[in-house]
C-alpha cells in the first residue's frame, strides 16, 4: 500500500518535472511550425498541421546561415581556448605558490561580479583602437577573457582534488611543468574538463551583450539574430521560435555526448571546497 503510494508520488513528480521543464520548449516548437499569430493563441493550438515554411525561409537566408556559422565558430574556438587557458591557470594556481595566488583567485571571482556593462564599454573603446570591432578574433578574445576566470576557478578546484603525489612521481621521472599537466594530470581530470567545457560552451553560445556591442553585421551570432526578430513594430514569433529550436540542437548534442562526464566532472570540481 505504502509502496503503491510512493509509486504514484514518484510518477506525479516525474510528470510535473517533465511538464514544467519541457513546456516552453514544446511551445516554441509548436509556434515555430505555425504562423506568427499562433503565439497569441490561448489555449495554445497544440494540434495542427505543421508548416515548415519558417525553417525553410531561415535556411534559405544567407544572413541567418552566416550567424549560425558564426555562433558555431565562436563557441567552439572560444570554449577550446577557455578550457586550455583555464586548465593551465587552474593548474598553476593549485600547484605552485604563485606570489599573490589567493589574491588572484579572489580577483578571478570578483571579475565575475562586475556588471557586464562596466566591462563592455571599455572593451568597445580598446577594440576601436585595435580595429577589432566586428571581427571574429575580437569576439573570441573578449569572450575568452570574460570566461577564462570561471574556467580557471573550476579547474583550480578540480586539480586541487587530484593528489599531488601524482605530480611528484612524474617530476621524479624528470617530467616538466607542461608534460606533467598534459600527460599526468589532464587524463585524470578529463571528466572535469568535459564538464567545464560544456558549461562554458552554453554560456558562450547564449552570450548576448558582448556580441551585441562588439559585433557589427559581419559576425552576428544567434542570440543577437533572435533579438532582431523583435522590432518596435512587430514580433516575428515564428522566426524567434524556430531559431531558438535550432539553437538548442547543438547544445543538446553536446550534452548527450558529454553526459557521462558531466556529473562526475562537476562533482570533481564542486565537492572539494
Amino acid at each position: 500500500m505504502v509502496k503503491g503510494l510512493a509509486h504514484v508520488g514518484n510518477f506525479i513528480i516525474a510528470i510535473a518535472l517533465i511538464v514544467v521543464s519541457i513546456y516552453p520548449v514544446a511551445w516554441l516548437i509548436v509556434v515555430s511550425l505555425q504562423s506568427d499569430s499562433s503565439a497569441y493563441q490561448s489555449p495554445t493550438n497544440w494540434i495542427f498541421v505543421p508548416q515548415f515554411g519558417t525553417y525553410g525561409k531561415l535556411f534559405a537566408d544567407p544572413s541567418f546561415l552566416a550567424s549560425l556559422a558564426n555562433s558555431v565558430q565562436l563557441a567552439v574556438i572560444a570554449t577550446a581556448l577557455c578550457v586550455l587557458f583555464g586548465a593551465m591557470g587552474g593548474y598553476a594556481l593549485s600547484r605552485y605558490k604563485v606570489p599573490g595566488a589567493t589574491g588572484l583567485t579572489f580577483m578571478f571571482a570578483l571579475s565575475r561580479l562586475v556588471p557586464t556593462f562596466a566591462i563592455v564599454v571599455p572593451t568597445f573603446y580598446i577594440y576601436r583602437q585595435l580595429n577589432l570591432l566586428d571581427t571574429m578574433a575580437g569576439l573570441v578574445l573578449a569572450l575568452v577573457a570574460f570566461q577564462v576566470p570561471l574556467s580557471a576557478l573550476i579547474m583550480y578546484r578540480i586539480f586541487g582534488g587530484i593528489p599531488q603525489s601524482l605530480d611528484e612521481a612524474a617530476r621524479i621521472d624528470g617530467a616538466g611543468f607542461l608534460r606533467i599537466l598534459w600527460q599526468v594530470i589532464l587524463p585524470v581530470a578529463r571528466p572535469g574538463l568535459a564538464a567545464s567545457a560544456v558549461v562554458t560552451f552554453v554560456l558562450i553560445w547564449n552570450e548576448f551583450l558582448f556580441v551585441l556591442v562588439l559585433a557589427g553585421n559581419q559576425v552576428v551570432t544567434i542570440p543577437v539574430t533572435i533579438a532582431g526578430f523583435q522590432t518596435d513594430k512587430q514580433v516575428l514569433w515564428s522566426s524567434i521560435a524556430a531559431t531558438s529550436v535550432i539553437s538548442l540542437i547543438p547544445i543538446l548534442l553536446l550534452i548527450a555526448f558529454a553526459q557521462r562526464h558531466l556529473l562526475s566532472g562537476l562533482g570533481m570540481g564542486a565537492v572539494r571546497e
Binding site: 587557458f85 593551465m88 591557470g89 593548474y91 598553476a92 595566488a101 576566470p149 580557471a152
Partner: peptide
C-alpha cells in the same frame, strides 16, 4: 606558472 596565470587572467 606565474606567466601562465597572467596570460590566462
Amino acid at each position: 606558472a606565474a606567466v601562465t596565470v597572467l596570460v590566462a587572467g
